[in-house]
Design a protein around this nucleic acid. Structure first.
Length: 123
DNA sequence: CGCCTGACCACGT
DNA sequence: CACGTGGCCAGGC
Protein backbone atom coordinates (compact mmCIF):
# COMPACT_ATOMS: atom_id res chain seq x y z
CA UNK A 1 0.00 0.00 0.00
CA UNK A 2 1.99 2.93 -1.25
CA UNK A 3 -0.09 5.73 0.17
CA UNK A 4 -3.68 6.55 1.17
CA UNK A 5 -3.95 9.14 -1.58
CA UNK A 6 -6.32 8.48 -4.42
CA UNK A 7 -4.40 6.80 -7.23
CA UNK A 8 -5.55 8.61 -10.37
CA UNK A 9 -3.30 6.58 -12.64
CA UNK A 10 -0.60 9.17 -11.90
CA UNK A 11 0.75 6.98 -9.13
CA UNK A 12 4.42 6.23 -9.45
CA UNK A 13 5.18 9.08 -11.85
CA UNK A 14 7.55 11.92 -11.14
CA UNK A 15 6.34 15.52 -10.80
CA UNK A 16 7.11 16.49 -14.39
CA UNK A 17 5.15 13.57 -15.79
CA UNK A 18 2.17 14.27 -13.55
CA UNK A 19 2.11 17.95 -14.58
CA UNK A 20 2.25 17.01 -18.24
CA UNK A 21 -0.55 14.48 -17.84
CA UNK A 22 -2.60 17.18 -16.11
CA UNK A 23 -1.90 19.63 -18.94
CA UNK A 24 -3.09 17.07 -21.48
CA UNK A 25 -6.25 16.36 -19.50
CA UNK A 26 -6.83 20.12 -19.37
CA UNK A 27 -7.27 20.29 -23.13
CA UNK A 28 -11.02 20.75 -23.67
CA UNK A 29 -12.88 18.37 -25.97
CA UNK A 30 -13.08 19.65 -29.51
CA UNK A 31 -9.80 21.51 -29.08
CA UNK A 32 -6.18 20.60 -29.76
CA UNK A 33 -2.71 21.62 -28.60
CA UNK A 34 0.86 21.15 -29.75
CA UNK A 35 3.45 19.16 -27.82
CA UNK A 36 5.37 22.32 -27.07
CA UNK A 37 2.23 24.06 -25.82
CA UNK A 38 1.41 21.16 -23.52
CA UNK A 39 4.93 21.20 -22.13
CA UNK A 40 4.77 24.96 -21.59
CA UNK A 41 1.38 24.69 -19.90
CA UNK A 42 2.90 22.07 -17.60
CA UNK A 43 5.57 24.56 -16.62
CA UNK A 44 8.21 22.67 -18.61
CA UNK A 45 9.16 24.83 -21.60
CA UNK A 46 11.34 23.07 -24.13
CA UNK A 47 10.27 19.58 -23.04
CA UNK A 48 8.07 18.81 -26.04
CA UNK A 49 9.95 15.57 -26.65
CA UNK A 50 9.28 14.57 -23.07
CA UNK A 51 5.56 14.97 -23.75
CA UNK A 52 5.94 12.74 -26.78
CA UNK A 53 7.79 10.14 -24.78
CA UNK A 54 5.12 10.18 -22.08
CA UNK A 55 2.35 9.71 -24.61
CA UNK A 56 4.29 6.87 -26.17
CA UNK A 57 4.65 5.29 -22.77
CA UNK A 58 1.08 6.11 -21.72
CA UNK A 59 -1.48 3.36 -21.21
CA UNK A 60 -4.35 5.34 -19.67
CA UNK A 61 -7.31 5.10 -22.09
CA UNK A 62 -8.94 8.07 -20.33
CA UNK A 63 -6.12 10.38 -21.37
CA UNK A 64 -7.10 12.61 -24.34
CA UNK A 65 -3.81 11.95 -26.12
CA UNK A 66 -5.52 12.43 -29.49
CA UNK A 67 -5.77 16.19 -28.83
CA UNK A 68 -2.00 16.54 -28.91
CA UNK A 69 -0.50 17.39 -32.30
CA UNK A 70 2.72 18.74 -33.74
CA UNK A 71 3.25 22.49 -33.69
CA UNK A 72 2.25 22.66 -37.38
CA UNK A 73 -1.04 20.88 -36.67
CA UNK A 74 0.06 17.58 -38.14
CA UNK A 75 -0.51 14.23 -36.47
CA UNK A 76 2.81 13.14 -35.02
CA UNK A 77 2.31 9.42 -35.59
CA UNK A 78 3.37 7.73 -38.81
CA UNK A 79 0.48 7.68 -41.32
CA UNK A 80 0.63 3.90 -41.64
CA UNK A 81 0.28 3.46 -37.89
CA UNK A 82 -3.06 2.21 -36.48
CA UNK A 83 -2.91 4.86 -33.78
CA UNK A 84 -2.73 7.50 -36.50
CA UNK A 85 -6.17 6.62 -37.82
CA UNK A 86 -7.53 6.29 -34.33
CA UNK A 87 -6.36 9.80 -33.51
CA UNK A 88 -7.91 11.28 -36.63
CA UNK A 89 -11.14 9.43 -35.96
CA UNK A 90 -11.33 10.56 -32.34
CA UNK A 91 -10.66 14.17 -33.36
CA UNK A 92 -13.41 14.11 -35.98
CA UNK A 93 -15.72 12.59 -33.37
CA UNK A 94 -15.15 15.78 -31.35
CA UNK A 95 -15.89 18.00 -34.30
CA UNK A 96 -12.28 18.77 -35.17
CA UNK A 97 -11.60 19.06 -38.88
CA UNK A 98 -8.79 16.70 -39.84
CA UNK A 99 -7.65 16.98 -43.43
CA UNK A 100 -4.74 15.02 -44.88
CA UNK A 101 -3.60 14.09 -41.39
CA UNK A 102 -3.56 17.72 -40.36
CA UNK A 103 -5.69 20.05 -38.24
CA UNK A 104 -6.05 23.58 -39.50
CA UNK A 105 -6.06 26.65 -37.32
CA UNK A 106 -3.67 25.47 -34.63
CA UNK A 107 -0.69 27.71 -35.38
CA UNK A 108 -2.87 30.56 -36.61
CA UNK A 109 -4.95 30.61 -33.43
CA UNK A 110 -1.87 30.76 -31.22
CA UNK A 111 -0.37 33.49 -33.38
CA UNK A 112 -3.56 35.52 -32.96
CA UNK A 113 -3.43 35.13 -29.19
CA UNK A 114 0.19 36.24 -29.14
CA UNK A 115 -0.73 39.16 -31.38
CA UNK A 116 -3.33 40.23 -28.84
CA UNK A 117 -0.88 40.05 -25.98
CA UNK A 118 1.98 41.72 -27.81
CA UNK A 119 -0.17 44.10 -29.79
CA UNK A 120 1.40 47.56 -30.26
CA UNK A 121 -0.11 50.61 -28.58
CA UNK A 122 -1.91 48.41 -26.13
CA UNK A 123 0.44 47.63 -23.32
C1' DC B 1 30.61 8.08 -19.59
C1' DG B 2 29.78 8.41 -24.89
C1' DC B 3 26.63 7.35 -28.72
C1' DC B 4 22.24 6.65 -30.99
C1' DT B 5 17.31 7.33 -31.21
C1' DG B 6 12.73 9.59 -30.76
C1' DA B 7 4.33 10.51 -31.13
C1' DC B 8 9.49 17.58 -31.24
C1' DC B 9 10.49 22.72 -32.63
C1' DA B 10 12.15 26.88 -35.06
C1' DC B 11 14.10 28.69 -39.13
C1' DG B 12 15.66 29.16 -43.77
C1' DT B 13 15.10 27.83 -48.71
C1' DC C 1 3.37 24.06 -48.17
C1' DA C 2 7.29 20.64 -48.54
C1' DC C 3 12.20 19.67 -47.24
C1' DG C 4 16.49 20.06 -45.09
C1' DT C 5 19.28 21.55 -40.98
C1' DG C 6 20.57 22.40 -36.27
C1' DG C 7 19.08 22.36 -31.60
C1' DC C 8 17.02 20.36 -27.39
C1' DC C 9 15.94 16.90 -23.71
C1' DA C 10 15.42 12.19 -21.88
C1' DG C 11 16.28 7.02 -22.30
C1' DG C 12 18.42 2.73 -23.54
C1' DC C 13 22.82 0.34 -24.27
Amino acid sequence: MPRPCQPTADAGFDAATIRILAAIRAIPAGSVAGYGVVARRAGLPGRARLVARILSNNDDPGLPWHRVLRSDGRIALPPDSPSYHEQAQRLRAEGVTVENGRVRGLRRAEADLDALVWAPSRG
